[in-house]
Simulated scan of single mutants.
Amino acid sequence: MKKQLFFMLNILLAFTLLLSACSSSGANSESSGDSDTITFKATHVTQETHIWHKTAEKFGEELEALSGGKMKLEIYPAAQLGQEKDMVQQLETGSLDFGFLTNAYMSTRQESLNAWFMPFAFNNLAEAVEMKDSEPAKEMLAELESQGLVGLDYVFAGNRHVLMKENHVSSPEDLKGKKVRIIGSPAIQDFWAETGAGPTAMPLSEIYTSLQTGVIDGIDIDLDALVTEKYYENANKLTLTNHMTFPAVIVMSQQSYANLSEENQQIVKEALKKAVEWGNAEAIKREEENLQTLKDAGVEVQELSNPDSFDEIKAKVIDQYSQKSPAIQSFIDDAK
């Protein structure tokens, strides 16, 4: 009886090891077998209709195509794996492979990324997209190495505008005393504080009801998020300010990256390059489409009628942040 039990245990152990060896391992323990599939995990905070999710899907398609089906991507949208601080922890440990992280959150971890939030730096999204290939922007990505991350690229959601419940915005005077939802970032916080508004940081999931119940008077938002999250159902005064742009920083876990062969690292980079080129072109295209969608939904849209009234605030924020990081100063100079 004991011999039979010992024999069965050995069979069970062998079967378990066989299953483990044959299963898809992901990037953390890349297999050398030609038939093995690497399944990566990626996450972000937006809904599946948002351009960042669509870019992630495109990345997955390119990975499969370039790898001959040996690389796949599982995407977890809408903060399914936790908030961004949780995502970064998972990236640091290698339990998560890719993150499409808001530049707002990442700017709280790395000073230089505040460069993207210098007020009124770009007249439109196309200008912002062009800056992603500048040397200062590449330097910011390289600095992420100190956090256990491989900085890969930027994909944009659009430029930032102001949606209010009761009035449009023509100058900082229209914002004084108003509770405006912002996404947490040092430069964004400082800009809004200078306008005289009461900047209130909160996650996307809380905005809809906060507008509905009057907890906030308005929001700082890009058009893609405004359409996908339908915040216009509770506020319909949209002022096109273009006061900031809004990229996601696409990163990979250093552990996951290091476990790939050089050939597979190159496939990842090439696939992402193709996806980002598509995603940013689509984001620019969506700016006009989203604007028309909002107008059709009854949103009252106005251009910022007095942009010069923000000049003093703009100069103060830029002067403050240009002294914080050489990369920020270089970015500002290139943007001009």
Rank of each mutant, 00 (worst) to 15 (best):
E64W: 00
A79S: 15
T43H: 04
D34Q: 09
G26V: 01
M244P: 11
V317T: 04
D319K: 12
F98D: 03
S330M: 10
S170M: 07
L204F: 12
H44L: 15
I51M: 13
I250E: 06
E270R: 07
A56F: 06
A197L: 10
A258C: 05
S205L: 10
K70F: 06
M140W: 10
L113H: 05
Q80R: 12
G177I: 07
S256M: 10
L294S: 04
K316Y: 01
S24Q: 12
K58N: 09
G218Y: 04
K237E: 03
D334Q: 13
V215W: 01
G177L: 09
T241N: 08
I216H: 04
E62P: 03
Q266C: 06
D174C: 10
T245Q: 11
A79C: 02
P203D: 05
S171K: 03
M87E: 06
A201H: 07
M252V: 10
V227K: 12
N290D: 12
S107T: 02
L81K: 04
S256A: 15
N234V: 07
V301T: 02
I38W: 03
L260G: 05
G82C: 03
G214V: 02
Q266H: 06
L175C: 12
T195V: 13
A187V: 15
E262S: 14
W192K: 03
G214A: 04
L238N: 02
T241G: 07
V249C: 04
G60Q: 09
L9F: 11
S23Q: 11
W278H: 10
P247N: 08
A104Q: 12
T200D: 05
D220T: 01
V45R: 10
E111A: 03
S20L: 14
G94M: 08
A201W: 00
K237Y: 09
L149E: 09
Q320T: 11
I11L: 14
I207L: 11
E139S: 14
T46G: 03
V88L: 14
A137M: 06
I11W: 02
Q320A: 13
Q4N: 02
P119L: 09
M202L: 15
D319V: 09
L18W: 03
K138A: 06
S31V: 10
E287G: 03
K273F: 11
Q147K: 15
D224S: 11
